[in-house]
Design a protein around this nucleic acid. Structure first.
Length: 267
DNA sequence: CAATGATCCTGTCCGC
DNA sequence: TGCGGACAGGATCATT
């Protein structure tokens, strides 16, 4: 499922296309997928890309004409470049129409994904308040100590909270907690400083590795489902029966999500 | 404010 | 072979 590394990979993929071709229109094929700001002018197209960037799991496209678009893939969304889009794909929920009859399809079977289009000056109305970027220096042990202080919720739930750290999802949180040796159900406020330091280091490490390993598995967009793929070999506990040291993996539910961990390696 | 649970949705997988 | 149910999970909203 698209977490920070996958979103970055998708963004890197569409960037050269949007740098080359202007957007002539934005079509919606499913109610609720495309959200247009009510104050938009009648005819805002064509749009030429000024800048494309990522914040957490959100992709933001800023156009020279003063408009911006946010794309969120949620669980099953993907952006697919199509030079000759003859038909509307079965799960195509929206489409960026480009010059020369080309298109970027927004494919999303479970329909949770969203695309917003609005005036750039209203970005704050559309991009929610998000926590620190995990790959930046702002995610450090001092910050994590501060936000975990006094919190009783399981550490895993807190790491998934986008208002604290922006970009982590269920899979990478399971993986990084295994590497850090911390049980996902530990109370956040009771994680000690040396564990916090490990979590900070392992968060960055897992994401950076995934950008390399997961970044390639995203191209056929199978990742977790592709049992033979690189991504499966990258995983150490998520949907696994045994950890790398041969211990049985447990799966408990936290915040309604399956949480895989090794009770022997994680304390 | 903190924490938890329900909700949105459909493809896939498992057991009978 | 077919069917029902469980499951997958990001973000938001409602509830305690």
């Amino acid at each position: 499922m698209p977490e920070l590394p996958e979103v970055q990979s998708v963004l890197d993929g569409v960037l050269p296309i949007l740098q080359t071709k202007r957007v002539l229109g934005l079509k919606s094929y499913y109610p609720g997928t495309l959200i247009l700001d009510p104050h938009l002018a009648e005819d805002i197209f064509p749009l030429s890309l000024k800048k494309a960037w990522r914040r957490g799991k959100y992709m933001i496209f800023d156009f020279n004409e003063g408009y911006s678009s946010i794309v969120h893939l949620r669980m099953t969304g993907k952006l697919v470049y199509e030079p000759q889009p003859e038909d509307i794909h079965k799960h195509e929920r929206a489409r960026f129409e480009l010059e020369d009859g080309e298109a970027i399809r927004f494919i999303d079977p479970r329909t949770f994904g969203k695309i917003w289009l609005f005036k750039s000056e209203n970005l704050d109305n559309y991009l929610p308040k998000l926590g620190v970027e995990p790959l930046e220096e702002e995610l450090n042990s001092k910050y994590l100590t501060q936000v975990l202080k006094g919190r009783k919720a399981p550490i895993k739930n807190l790491l998934l909270d986008q208002r604290l750290i922006a970009g982590l999802g269920n899979i990478y949180v399971c993986e990084l907690l295994y590497r850090s040796g911390v049980r996902p159900d530990r109370s956040g406020g009771k994680v000690n400083l040396s564990e916090i330091k490990r979590i900070v280091k392992d968060t960055k490490e897992v994401l950076e590795e995934a950008i390399v390993a997961g970044g390639t598995s995203i191209s056929d967009y199978r990742n977790v489902d592709d049992k033979s793929g690189k991504f499966q070999r990258f995983l150490r506990v998520y949907q696994k029966k045994e950890c790398p040291r041969g211990h049985d993996i447990e799966n408990i539910r936290l915040a309604g999500r399956s949480s895989f961990f090794c009770p022997k390696c994680q304390k």
